[in-house]
Design a protein around this nucleic acid. Structure first.
Lengths: 313, 313
DNA sequence: CTTAACCATGACAGTTTCTGGCATGGTTTT
DNA sequence: AAAACCATGCCAGAAACTGTCATGGTTAAG
């Protein structure tokens, strides 16, 4: 086996142990102790963060951040990584902030000069623009850790009517539209509720643990693909502008039928519970759309308009 | 110099040339031709996509995707890359689709077993959820290339009243909220306009070139940080629900003043041209907010409410 | 305070790998 | 047919690597 390969294997070996001696390595790889020392200083030079403790019960230790063996990327893959990071900048709070800079630096440094120029010039024609969200979410890391360890959380939460204190069992967190959401089992209500992490005022990890009922991906699938409990037919007529607007809404797009460039309609089935949200949406579109069914929606929109007129009378 | 370093340098050298002979390499690195051959087969084994053409005027060629020398990441950096890719999945159209998969595969393969497990378990508690945007943008790559090459584009665009054909000089593209936008100089109107790429029906690259007036980052900065041309004072009273809602709007957040948890107000200055948009926004919030100033906004909201009542009478 | 169990480093000879020539054979262009 | 490439094999000398001592530290246990 080539020496290079042997060293890669050593890197992997070293990462699986927290602490080990040169003897261990010599025995494991069938080499002499002297050579083990030599190999270890080699990989340390390559960047693996080793340090040693002298004395009896001493030995080699690996510092926290484990090092992966070298990987070869190509130019396009490097681009992909850079642009993925651009997209991440959209989020103001991230659980792993720091490291994206170090990756960028390593990657950029290894680029040949003309690729650097190409990168820079591409950078000047494509961006992931971010409207600096000023809503920080300070508890991300704690929530993740609590979810992974199945710990109960005690949170103070800004809800619609007042601030409430709840004990919840977090399932996980997910990001959507620049916000972080935490679905969690609410002990008091006996069901899974969705919380926005930026609306958590304070958070405390308890020592209680819970048996996880469901994992995040399952929960997301279930709650997104759920079939309506009490289905309601939705029928909306669209003007040209209505077509244009509704096409931007991913939840509506599949149900849009274009009759002509200036006319179309939406035909779909929604759940009773979504009425409030849907009503707000079509209300905002004003005369660009005309809701025909359901009746409640029409009434809801009309009522909302009356309320506004009353308020500004 | 160690052989490894020599090979890395050779990788870089090879990438700067499209075509070269073993002689060139031997001369450049001060090694024999025989060794040059050996080195070249070595880096080919390592994954650099070399191929050779026999015969006079033959030589070594490098296939398209240039390979970067090996890079060592650590575990946390690998996490950062994975999560950045998660975030990218939010966009349905990407100019560099394919390569994120290959990066993920390479990275995942090099992870030690227990880190793989850690990754998988983290994956089950954190996600970047994406409401599958079904609005594809097929022209991204062409727009980027045209912008980089300063080419004029002829596009057919779905605008408010009708489909129009325009000649535009693209400045670049940027992503925001899951959509791709293209600011471009519109020849007919003599000014820079903003287009949504998914509303481009057809696109044709012309051979005409233009002198770029401004680069994308500058344009973004300018158009985002611009001072109002005709400033208007905005004053809005907020209920508890109003506070909650407006906090989610990055453009409003800085101007929110919380009097008590159940009461607050917004005091800001906006531009005359933004009135239509702002009006739509506060309209939608209904009774959770009360616009006090400017007068036009109040009138606008009231008028919109009346129109709705008329429409649904 | 001695011993055991570690690391660190140097010297040296034997072994392995690498290197540079040289030679042969194949392909394509001129 | 000659020139200019690559591909591969062989071989001797050079360079690098390896294992075996040997020496000198450090720390913990007895």
């Amino acid at each position: 086996m080539s020496k290079a390969k042997q060293l890669f294997d050593l890197i992997l070996y070293v990462n699986t142990k927290r602490s080990f001696t040169a003897q261990d390595v010599a025995h494991e790889f069938g080499i002499s102790v002297r050579t083990a020392h030599r190999y270890l200083t080699d990989i340390a030079d390559m960047g693996v963060p080793l340090y040693t403790e002298p004395g009896r019960s001493g030995g080699y230790r690996v510092l926290s951040n484990r090092t992966l063996p070298p990987i070869m990327f190509n130019e396009e893959e490097a681009f992909a990584i850079f642009f993925a990071f651009q997209a991440l900048k959209y989020y103001q709070s991230l659980p792993f902030d720091i490291h994206i800079d170090s990756v960028s630096r390593k990657l950029y440094a290894s680029l040949p000069d003309d690729t650097k120029r190409k990168m820079d010039s591409l950078d000047s024609v494509i961006t992931f623009w971010n409207q600096k969200r000023t809503v920080p979410s300070p508890f991300l890391k704690e929530i993740i850790e609590a979810a992974a360890a199945h710990q109960l959380l005690k949170i103070e939460y800004v809800s619609k009517l007042e601030n409430t204190v709840r004990e919840v069992a977090p399932i996980g967190i997910y990001a959507s539209d620049g916000f972080w959401y935490m679905p969690a089992f609410d002990q008091a209500h006996g069901e899974i509720r969705l919380f926005r992490t930026d609306r958590i005022v304070s958070l405390e990890r308890t020592s209680e643990v819970f048996a996880p009922q469901i994992e995040l991906p399952d929960w997301l699938n279930r709650s997104m693909a759920q079939t309506p409990e009490s289905p309601v037919r939705l029928y909306v007529e669209l003007t040209r502008e209505g077509l244009r607007q509704c096409r931007s809404q991913p939840w509506l797009e599949p149900y849009i039928v274009e009759v002509s460039p200036d006319q179309g309609y939406i035909e779909s089935v929604i759940d009773q519970r979504e009425l409030e949200f849907v009503s707000g949406y079509f209300f905002q579109l004003g005369t660009a759309v005309t809701v025909i069914e359901p009746r409640e929606l029409v009434d809801g929109i009309r009522e909302q308009a009356r309320e506004i007129l009353r308020q500004y009378s």
